Amino acid sequence: MSKQIQLETALSQALTPAHLSVADESHMHSRGLETHYKAVIVSERFAGLNAVKRHQLAYASLGDLMGQIHALALHTYTPAEWAEQGVAPASPTCRGGSAS
């Protein structure tokens, strides 16, 4: 099972999102395959939580999977926020860096 599917499954089970999108953005970076991901998560579980608490909740739902990837960009919204915004920001272009 790919890391992307594992991430989607873990986030879906823990956060019961109204919307979930997980993209493998490894091709934009120099660290290899299945290393960089972007997740857009819309969940009622985020209501009343600041960005740090939302990210901690997402990271906790992934458990050991976090140790198997290099980077995870999280964009977390409540359904009301998502209805207003409707799109997550684009990921920045990789600035290079070490390949190790």
Rank of each mutant, 00 (worst) to 15 (best):
V52T: 06
T76P: 03
A58H: 00
Q68E: 15
K53N: 07
N50D: 13
L62H: 02
D24S: 00
G48K: 05
A71H: 09
A51M: 11
S61T: 05
R31N: 12
I41S: 05
I41D: 02
P79T: 10
A60P: 07
L57H: 03
K38E: 02
A23W: 01
E81W: 01
R45S: 14
A71P: 04
Y37G: 00
M66H: 06
A73N: 07
T35E: 10
H19K: 12
L49Q: 07
T16F: 13
A60M: 07
M28H: 11
G67K: 09
L74I: 12
L33A: 14
L15S: 02
A23L: 15
Y37H: 06
L15I: 06
A39G: 12
H29I: 02
G32E: 00
H19C: 11
A58V: 15
A80F: 05
Y77F: 15
F46R: 01
S26V: 03
L15E: 00
I69Y: 04
V52R: 02
A60Y: 01
G67A: 15
L72F: 08
G32T: 01
A51P: 06
A58M: 11
D24T: 07
T35H: 05
P79W: 12
L15M: 07
A47V: 13
S30A: 15
T78E: 04
L20A: 09
A18W: 13
A58C: 14
H36I: 07
S30N: 15
M28G: 11
L20G: 05
H27W: 01
T78M: 06
L33P: 09
L74G: 01
L20R: 05
V42H: 02
E44Y: 11
H29K: 10
Q56I: 06
H19F: 15
H27G: 04
H36F: 03
I41P: 00
M28L: 15
Y59D: 08
T35F: 02
H27Q: 09
H55L: 08
E34R: 08
Y77N: 05
G32L: 00
A60Q: 10
A58N: 03
H70T: 04
D24G: 07
G32S: 09
L33G: 10
A47S: 13
D64Y: 06
M28T: 12
L33T: 13
D64S: 11
Y37E: 08
G67N: 15
P79K: 05
H70C: 06
K38N: 12
H19G: 01
A39C: 10
R54Q: 11
A73R: 05
S26H: 00
S21R: 13
E81I: 08
V42L: 02
S26I: 00
I69W: 03
E25V: 10
A47M: 07
Y37I: 05
F46S: 05
H70P: 07
Y59T: 11
A60L: 05
E81D: 10
H27C: 04
T76N: 08
D24Y: 04
S30M: 14
Q56D: 08
V40C: 09
V22F: 02
P17H: 05
H55Y: 03
L74N: 04
S30Y: 11
A51K: 13
V52N: 08
L49K: 02
A51Y: 00
H75C: 14
F46P: 04
H27M: 06
V40L: 08
K53Y: 02
Q68N: 12
